[in-house]
Amino acid sequence: MSEAQIECRDLWKVYGRRSDEAMRAVLSEGLSKEEVRDRFNCVLGVRDASFSVKKGEIFCIMGLSGSGKSTLVRHVNRLIEPTAGEIHVAGQRVDTMNEAGLRQLRAKTIGMVFQHMALWPHRTLGDNVGFGLEVRGVSANQRREASVRALEAMDLGGWIDHYPDQLSGGMQQRVGLARALAADPEILLMDEPFSALDPLIRRQLQDQFLNLSAQMDKTTLFITHDLDEAIRMGDHIAIMNDGEIVQIGTPEEIVTNPKDGYVAEFVKGISRVALVRAETIMDRLDGREVTAKQVGLGAELGDIIEHFMEDQSPVTVMSPDGPPVGQITIKAALTALRG
């Protein structure tokens, strides 16, 4: 708990006029989404979601549209009111917070980036970026300073007096990021920030964000519908389906050990070359012969395959402190590659 920057416990969101009633019925009778809809005319947005995000980590929430991932993330700054459950952010309890405290939290502690940028077209970039400070009553000079700093970090220093519609899509989303970072918040909520961009720009922005994130030690909740992106960005990934979190794990865990058919279906087309490590696929050495081909525990599947180019004899896996611990046959490597 002490280390977790964002923690949600048993979070539920039921939409509809009879949401409380529906909620009680769901808890006591375990109704399905369809039953809730038919009996109470309510929609289950989030169903019993629990997760925690450590300080400095990028936590991806992956799911298709309608899976409730956007709804879930909006509970963190309470743009959406939870029906039940607890939300803790940066040591504060959010679900019971009053309006004034909530505004402080949103303006200071949490920055948010939106899928369609949501930059205000009638404000200059400077005024867009400085908005969070403006509503807190920070003076114009300080606001401008912060805006300049945030825009410069995004390589947009010279654009401060321009308007959003004078920028390309990729630049606009960099402004969106600058706006989220202007108040130097501890936490970033990113709601499919790069989905609306073309692939090349998306890739650039992903890299830029990863660099930035490594430098700045922000805790990030990152939503995406693209598993490749989730694997690239995330330290941990939560997979959502129909309002429920199906599985939480590191990218490797998700890919090598999908919990159910739904996750497996997603993971199918993902390349394992850079994801699966020797440790996961090796057999215990158990007295077998140590070969000349040796790799470490953390070696990636791609490197291991390199060793089978010349001959097909097994590869030995060495522990960090010396002794060999396991071996990988060509069969095991190919099986891991196929998934």
Partner: peptide
């Protein structure tokens, strides 16, 4: 989302 963004940055 314009309105939501305003709220997300702490506007009353």
């Amino acid at each position: 989302d314009m309105v939501e963004a305003a709220r997300a940055f702490g506007a009353s």
